[in-house]
Design a protein around this nucleic acid. Sequence first.
DNA 1: ACCTGAACACCGTTCAAGT
DNA 2: ACCTGAACACCGTTCAAGT
Lengths: 190, 190
Amino acid sequence: MTTDKRLIVAAANLLDAGGEEAVTLRAVGHAAGVSHNAPYKHFANRSALLAAVATVSFSDLAEAMAAIRGSPRTPLEKLTAILDLFIDYSREHPARYRLLFNNPETAAAGGELKIKALETFDHFRSIVQECQQAGGLPDAPSETLASLIFATAHGLLAIESNGQLHPEKGLSSVKASMEILLALLTPAKM
Amino acid sequence: MTTDKRLIVAAANLLDAGGEEAVTLRAVGHAAGVSHNAPYKHFANRSALLAAVATVSFSDLAEAMAAIRGSPRTPLEKLTAILDLFIDYSREHPARYRLLFNNPETAAAGGELKIKALETFDHFRSIVQECQQAGGLPDAPSETLASLIFATAHGLLAIESNGQLHPEKGLSSVKASMEILLALLTPAKM
DNA sequence: ACCTGAACACCGTTCAAGT
DNA sequence: ACCTGAACACCGTTCAAGT
């Protein structure tokens, strides 16, 4: 594996294991078997290395979403699956989730990172559109509705981690709340 | 003004002006007219100082929400007003907003900070409940519904700042999307 | 009780130099 | 082309000392 890939992997592992503050260039270099400033030969600075981690992470997410999108399930099952994927990802990789969806620098990025992020969102939007065509979601621009649903999941995860979402019997509060939202949004069958 | 208050004000100003990274104890001390480690005589460490900033910020927010809650408006007008307050706050004080609603340390805090945060949320929940009683929102536990609406606003602000929310003609996208959500949630008049 | 200045460990970044 | 080690500026934190 080339040094730049090893640096990205090392940074991602440190991020998952110890949060963003644990991703020091010294630790990354050491984990990749190079000196503490070898990263500068591959990335402009620490932010650029984190952006590279975000880019590959978005790629992985987009790939998993594409698999769900192409699977033989009903649109509503796909929507539930993709929401679960997203929610599980945030629980299993909280610091990386923060880097992807809660980081001003990631947000301000352009280039490949932005493209991968938009790709990820488009898989989600497409599944929402399938649900609309199947009559399971109301008739609004799919992008607007997808933003709303995605934003709600994202926001619920945030307030859950803020301890402001009271747990409900057994079930994940976020998943339960998303089911309530989808139920409320489902057009009345005539 | 006592030194501890001056330190909190200085930290809040630095936060608003330059983001969290600008809140160094050296800069805070200098702005408050004391040495770079005088803060340690009033706060356990940098995190504790930021927690104090969060606490007074939540207090201010709760006060503004209480004013809306007690104003002579219809429940739906109050809900719109409180959502606008929240959205405007995030735009005018982005770094402070992040500290309040997007910070793992704030989330993990207890004590007065937690109390003030819950107080803020309860004003919101109460107005949602008023809307439900007026028939403008569906019949679900007010806490659950309030969490959903709050989470959606929070999430929309996040994806807007992530550049994933396309602007709509003139209006704030977040405010427009929230109106769509409320319209979709409004029970059909029979 | 409240504050200061020196000191320590750590970090991002730069630079001159090595192969 | 790729890497290393020393160095610099900056930061959070601690400590001994001052009033």
